[in-house]
Design a protein around this nucleic acid. Structure first.
Lengths: 302, 302
DNA sequence: GCGCAGCATCGTAAAATCCTATTCAACGGC
DNA sequence: GCCGTTGAATAGGATTTTACGATGCTGCGC
């Protein structure tokens, strides 16, 4: 248990600096008896007489007091530095932001978001991670991340969700598939086609629900948690898929041609959102990043 | 003005270490609501939420909280180090001792005193200074020195004086002086001789008082504040002197022969003492040095 | 759904902090 | 040598802080 307080140190160092209790009192805006008592108590608590009292002539540090005071000033400076840094951490837009992103959203949006934000606020560094919805929520809840960028699906009550943008899902077909002749693909046309499922929570549920809502029981021929693997499978002609994420370029990694077609039916759009813990008081840095995300998605929409 | 206390930091770091308020409470021996309130107040004061609360599952630091806590722990360690060092400074016999000595006493006694004390207590360093009585008292009063080694003459009320030893003054004569035939020199025999005065306060008063008490008005031919200059003047045959300090060897710096004779009369002895400020609470180091001085002078006496 | 774990809140008592007013001691000017 | 000034210490009282026990609330696991 610590036997002295920062306040006592602060007062003692001020008395040292000003050479008298009275002068320190005037400078600190604290009554003289307060300082006198504070000093007496500090001396009693550390068992060391810090100052020699000269009647009507101020005080001067004793040899042992001088050594203590020199160290005490270091401690005080340390405390003041911490306070300054902390005040900055709460109000300045600088420092580190920990952002987690759903795996299929990350490649398209996170790099421009980070780039834009960092060029707006040069003092900022961003720590990035990707994962499944469960991992993101767990990470935010445990304090590993400030924010998560994800699809607004089945969000628990203890999160605040900031909607950013919505994207219509599309049908992904092999480049040579017969349905590519259609401009819009009605879901019923896919009824008997083999389905390649992007198998990450909660996307899995989202895609199957779209089909089921249209009265279709998908024939899941393959499934993979990797977007690029799904695109590759479709590229090989092994089935169609339904996706929201649409990378630039209509080719798989292996080079097969792919075709993207809008869905003719009315379907639930994929909603991208930023999630934060409801109970977390936001730092200005976090709020600024949220604003930047809103702004970014508003701009790319138009 | 600092916005947080060391106590708050201590509690917050303990909560971090134990992963929950309850665990920290048990470990610190402090009631749980106390920690809860302390933490809430700290968070409000620094404007930063440090922990995420998990109902019935402890707490975990937020990303910003983690950075604060890491720094806070440094500060806490710093404060604990200072406390440890200070406790040692008050009770251990180590650190620095500031000793001032009257100029004519220093050469004979200070080196062996320092050597003996430092070999007894290896962790001790001693800062030394010499000066006149006034300078010594001023130095102790202003906190430049812990102790002064001096003659117990006209000591002010605000000092504690520890008597160490007394020495009889002696007559110093040129080696070839007629009075050297005597084993003891009565002061009347010096009545018409020229006197060389060691002129440092308070020695000056002490020596002239000795002669005046014997009914002699000294014919001051020369005076000097330097013991060795006085001895040189006597060596040149320019007069006699009365001194307490008796260096080893009966020659001046220039090589002239000197003769030392006891005074036949009953005269006031020079009393060597250790002086400290009455109002100063003594550290253990200072007390130990006082004891060592008493011991040393008791030993050389026998 | 019910008990358990763990943080927050409430009410209150003790302690610390701070203020004003006053006392006391030393120095300097006359 | 007396007196005004300066500056630390003390006394008394109001406020704030810190601490406690009791209790409430909420999510997890059986």
């Amino acid at each position: 248990m610590l036997r002295y307080t920062l306040r006592q140190i602060e007062y003692a160092v001020a008395i040292w600096d000003h050479g008298s209790v009275a002068a320190a009192s005037a400078h600190l805006g604290v009554a003289q008896p307060t300082l006198s008592a504070s000093l007496a108590k500090l001396e009693a608590q550390i068992g060391l007489q810090l100052f020699i009292r000269h009647h009507a002539q101020g005080v001067s540090p004793s040899p042992a007091g001088l050594r203590f005071l020199a160290e005490a000033r270091n401690l005080l400076t340390h405390a003041q530095d911490l306070q300054r840094d902390t005040a900055a951490a709460g109000t300045a837009i600088e420092g580190q932001l920990a952002l987690a992103s759903f795996a299929t959203i990350a490649p398209s949006f996170v790099p421009p978001l980070i780039k834009g934000f960092m060029s707006l606020h040069p003092g900022v560094t961003i720590r990035m991670a990707e994962g499944t919805q469960d991992e993101l929520l767990k990470g935010v809840r445990s304090g590993d991340f400030d924010l998560a960028l994800l699809y607004d699906v089945d969000m628990p009550e203890d999160f605040t969700v900031t909607l950013l943008a919505s994207f219509a899902p599309h049908v992904l077909l092999p480049g040579k598939h017969k349905l590519t002749r259609l401009k819009n693909v009605p879901l019923v046309a896919l009824k008997d086609e083999p389905f390649v499922l992007l198998d990450i929570a909660p996307s899995r549920t989202y895609f199957t629900r779209i089909l089921e809502t249209a009265g279709i029981t998908p024939k899941v021929a393959f499934s993979s948690p990797s977007l690029e693997v799904v695109r590759g499978l479709v590229g090989q002609g092994l089935g169609y898929s339904i996706l929201v994420t649409r990378p630039f370029g209509d080719h798989s990694y292996a080079g097969e041609e792919l075709a993207v077609r809008p869905i003719a039916d009315e379907v639930a759009r994929g909603v991208i959102a930023l999630a934060a813990l409801k109970q977390m008081r936001k730092t200005r840095l976090v709020s600024a990043f949220e604003a930047h995300c809103i702004d970014y998605f508003r701009k790319i929409r138009t």
